[in-house]
Design a protein around this nucleic acid. Sequence first.
DNA 1: CGCCAGATTGACT
DNA 2: GTCAATCTGGCGG
Length: 195
Amino acid sequence: MKVLPREFYFRGPDEVAAELLGKLLVRIYKGRRLSGFIVETEAYFGPEDPASRAKRGGGLAKVMEGEVGLALVYGVHRKWLLNVVAHEEGGIGAVLIRAIHPFEGVELMKELRKVRKIRELTNGPGKLTEALAVDKKFHRKPLYLPDSDLRIERGSYPGALKVARSHRIGVSEDLPVPYRFYVEGDPYVSKVRPL
DNA sequence: CGCCAGATTGACT
DNA sequence: GTCAATCTGGCGG
């Protein structure tokens, strides 16, 4: 089986975030395969995490403490952000997918993004959802089914998979421990931020 | 229904 | 580097 099983997400969000690097995010769009290797992620926890949506309560918090392996899609600044629900038994958490390295369907992704520069295609959380035509309709949809239109497969990342970490990007208040993970040296990592 | 903050992006100085 | 567009989701009324 190529897709990552549901159990893959049945661990702490930080562990899942690190393990997702190098995996293949696949979108079936109009019968065509669009995909890219995940090169940047961030882990978010429960109410004790000041940057987490779970802290505010409401529907998103419910999804974050619900079934693992489901997509969590929500909008900020007119962009859709894609997360995967991941936590241990009885826990709360999700992993934000921040950047992918384009693999299949690059030309179609360029059309969807309306950009020329390939570097600009998927090097940010709001950019990759646009490139893969991911929106609210995927909210709470499982990513572990072999025939899902949006799923995560075992990939073979081209090159050495050297994992680095830093503090999360764009949050006003972060935890003392850095929870952003990225593939060092990959050109599609959104940006560098010092520890 | 109105208010407001925000896990962003792209244009511009 | 600065800055604002633009809209979702949560919450109060």
